[in-house]
Design a protein around this nucleic acid. Structure first.
Lengths: 213, 213
DNA sequence: TATCAATGAATGAACGTTCATTAACTTGTA
DNA sequence: TACAAGTTAATGAACGTTCATTCATTGATA
């Protein structure tokens, strides 16, 4: 674990509220990756951040609140990255946007082990925690509706006679999440490059005129 | 939660050791689905089983042991189901085996919410728990090697010029796991039939002579 | 009667939360 | 500019709760 502050030194009242919150969220992400969502303690998180035990309740009221905000942070970061790609639709071809999506979904930033551990940590608890489930489901539906629009355009351009846009979209998001899982579970035998190749094979099979193997 | 025994009645010494173990494992599966892997207590599990608090330590030595055995139970059940399908290779065509795999991966038994909750619960903790990671990784590799052999045969039969067997295998296992996640996260909007259709679209795109949309 | 699965009250460790105290920063006054 | 009074972020010891584990006791079976 690497400290996210310079030191536990005598500099107090140093940071604006929002920065402290983000500092604590980032420490939480590290701790989830290192100790698991179910095993982290307040002491783990505050030690990782180089701060004192009481700080989380000061800024987040409760541990549960911090965890929810951490999930939201990771989810928002991903959704914003996707939205940015789609914003360029007016200046790029559908082929290019498709490539951008692939590049993004298997970028170092998105596939960072810590981030993946957060996704799967919360997915693992989602069934029994309505709050987690809601945040995850909303993110999924945002992702799917934006990708589906793109796929619809591509299907019209290519006059593809295969499955409809929604089906291809479900398949794409599923394969991406499944490959992320592989990256998390078998990190030695599998890497981003391999994962991207597998996802590309899917898109190439669905949209052969738009993307090559 | 439904009791897995008839009642917490005065019947002691009633069951052989192995049956008690399975009874406790099944109670654990229910509890993971209902309360989440990180939230279950010994009291939850033993109450669900209709037994007393000390019983888990008697049969499993520790809570952690019970959890590991529960993961192994679910993993073994899945792997045995797959092995059974492949055993019929000598009496069935590759098309039929392919259909059997699809039917199995999206069967009610495999897609049972409780079982999915167990998979994702442990996947979520795998990054920080070597024991979980090892069991999950071994299962993954067993699944992949058996499916890859089948896909290799199909590729030769169809003289397919697309991606190699290992790539298609990774894609298939990834899409299945991703669809399971969807079933778990958005149960209302998505069901087994939809999921199977999406997976079928993948296989149909890869092996058009062997399977239809 | 001897054996052993099963029980559940008791134990002690781990953990989230609280809050009195400390210290950094701001504002008001001369 | 200097300094006092006021404000609030940050600290961490103490507290109360939760929970896994233990083990003396119970009672069914052979």
């Amino acid at each position: 674990m690497t400290k996210t502050t310079a030191s536990p030194s005598r500099k107090r009242r140093a940071m604006p509220k929002q920065d402290r919150r983000i500092q604590l969220i980032k420490a939480t992400i590290s701790c989830i990756a290192n100790k698991g969502l179910s095993n982290i303690t307040m002491a783990d998180i505050t030690t990782e951040a180089g701060l004192s035990l009481g700080i989380v309740n000061l800024h987040f009221q409760s541990k549960n609140n911090l965890l929810v905000e951490t999930l939201r942070f990771v989810v928002d970061e991903y959704n914003e990255g996707q939205a940015k790609i789609l914003k360029k639709r007016s200046t790029k071809t559908t082929q290019e946007i498709l490539e951008d999506h692939l590049a993004f979904d298997f970028s170092a930033k998105v596939c960072q082990k810590d981030k993946l551990a957060v996704w799967f940590g919360f997915w693992g608890e989602a069934k029994s925690r309505p709050t987690y489930q809601k945040i995850c489901a909303e993110s999924d539906s945002a992702t799917e509706s934006s990708i589906s629009t793109l796929f619809q355009e591509i299907i019209e351009e290519g006059n593809y006679q295969g499955p409809d846009a929604d089906t291809v979209t479900k398949g794409y998001t599923a394969i991406v999440e499944g490959l992320w899982l592989d990256l998390l579970i078998t990190p030695a035998a599998f890497n981003r490059k391999n994962a991207k190749r597998v996802a590309r094979a899917y898109l190439a099979a669905m949209f052969p005129q738009h993307i090559d193997l």
